[in-house]
Write a protein that binds this DNA or RNA. Structure first.
Lengths: 301, 301
DNA sequence: GACTTAAATTCTGAAAAAGAGAATACACAT
DNA sequence: ATGTGTATTCTCTTTTTCAGAATTTAAGTC
């Protein structure tokens, strides 16, 4: 019958599109990997790869099967971790906003991988909205997201959440720009921001709208990184809004004109009930490096 | 590494609480089953059974692990079926209302198991509400439920649905009871009905309330089967509301007073995207034995 | 279109694991 | 205590997995 090892082999080959590379990564010999794939194909009765293409390509069925295999292997990993909490180990799939990944995670993650070398952290970044989707679709295990205070477009108990970082959202204006009190006084025509789904962008847009009725047509220049965002602002063509913790990383911030806007805390969210030891130590680690130390974070216990 | 066969063995032993019986059911020898269990325990590092109890009992970790194993094996089965639609096979977990199971399924299922002996049908019954929960929690694969026309407490696209049976909801009054036009004219004090979550019960209550304002305190006698419901009504202490198809099964119905109330169609629902060949032939079979033949049932194709 | 190259597959013998069946240990009953 | 039905251990046989060499195959190069 089917072996989880075979499924892991299939997953690796599918990812690498190569028997040889997969074999190296798995510490096996190519002939072995090749046969295991063929065994799976024989068992399910469907070819998984197109052998007549040289960078090996998955067949349509292969794609579907890979999706199932991913879910099965994640479940198996989670089962192992949940049932034997003695040793945090395995994979923890972390999703994070760009800002948190830039300003908060590097230190914490370095520390974490030293203390828990058995845990592999799989980090990906995306805007808050997409992170929530990924979480609910089981593509990641936990996410660092910005929850706008008060209103919240996700049902109350659809996710477990703990506040982790207190962030001040700052207005960043080009160097030499005069201080402003109202959105209307901002000179650059466009806001540099991330793709839709980003909570900060949403908050920024609200602030612009709410206070400056004249500024009804807010232009948005979409960027893919904070470096790009700051660069655009430095040049004077845009202004931007970003957390103070990221601002602190910008060399020579003092040349820019900045202004405090609002609070926007970062939360650590999971699917309800997800509680592997790897995740628990990860959460502890984040709370330790946090400025909101030990507030209401025992609700989930 | 872990073998799906091992997981299936563990599941069987956990179900049967016996190595010997599990071995028989799986066509294996007990020593083999015993060792596979021990291999799993060695791999996950946690004992799954309490060996000092004689009907073997799962440990706490065993319970948790069993839950994961169930999900993993169901996924694997679904993967196999989805990816190779050639041969409908494997397990199809069907949930049904009591009424449908009584009046509609026996014939259809008998026919089905003759035509598709490779498919094992796992039938359970529950009220509509609970069936929907079970479906979303992945405890069953499809469900035969009553969707009240118009209003519907489930989000539009949370489930895929097809109408299967046209049901007439009938009022059943004790033998000799005079014909009624309004709820107020009903003599028995109590309605015999299933547990809350039953759509028919909900519709019944609405009908009673909507038309008879005097009858504000409707007493409900909860029953667990239609036989009990009919028996209570025969005795004269209750009245009841049930689909005509079930009524047709009652011996000597003609002695009772009956009256048509409303339509309440039965739908076949699945999680969105669930489409194994076993399910597809099951759906075809139901549609064939249905009175709503081939209406709007190609939306899901 | 032949040649090169890198990669997948097939073939083979050695090593490891799983299986059956008999013997043993164990929990619960009387 | 002693018997009975189960689970486990032990031993041997069969099956499967694995590594390494040989072979085939797909794509790029002259």
């Amino acid at each position: 019958m089917m072996d989880l090892a075979s499924l892991a082999i299939f997953r690796e080959v599918a990812r690498e599109r190569s028997v040889t590379r997969a074999a190296e990564l798995l510490g096996r010999v190519p002939s072995n990997v090749s046969t295991r794939i063929q065994q799976i194909e024989a068992e399910i009765g469907v070819p998984l790869f197109q052998r007549d293409k040289r960078p090996m390509e998955l067949t349509k069925e292969g794609e579907i099967y890979l999706d199932y295999v991913d879910r099965i292997l994640n479940l198996a990993d989670e089962a192992q971790q949940t049932v034997n909490p003695a040793t945090p180990a395995g994979v923890l799939r972390v999703g994070s906003m760009e800002s948190t990944a830039a300003a908060r995670l590097p230190g914490a993650l370095a520390q974490f991988s030293l203390k828990w070398p058995q845990v592999t952290i799989d980090l990906s970044t995306a805007p808050t909205r997409q992170l929530v989707d990924a979480l609910l679709a089981n593509r990641i295990d936990c996410a660092l997201i910005a929850v706008p205070e008060g209103e919240w477009w996700l049902a109350q108990d659809e996710l477990d959440k703990v506040p982790i970082f207190r962030e001040d959202l700052m207005l960043l204006l080009p160097p030499g720009h005069p201080e402003v009190q109202h959105p209307g006084e901002i000179k650059p025509r466009a806001l540099a921001a991330f793709a839709p789904g980003c909570t900060y962008r949403m908050l920024s847009e609200e602030w612009m709208m709410g206070l400056g009725p004249a500024r009804s047509a807010l232009r948005i220049h979409e960027v893919r990184s904070y470096h790009a965002m700051v660069a655009c602002t430095a040049v004077g063509s845009c202004f931007s809004i970003l957390p103070r913790s990221v601002l602190d990383l910008v060399p020579e911030v003092s040349r820019f004109t900045t202004r405090y806007l609002m609070r926007a805390d970062t939360w650590l969210a999971t699917r309800p009930g997800y509680k592997t030891p790897a995740f628990q130590v990860f959460r502890e680690m984040l709370l330790d490096s946090s400025d909101i130390k030990g507030t209401n974070n025992n609700a989930a216990e």
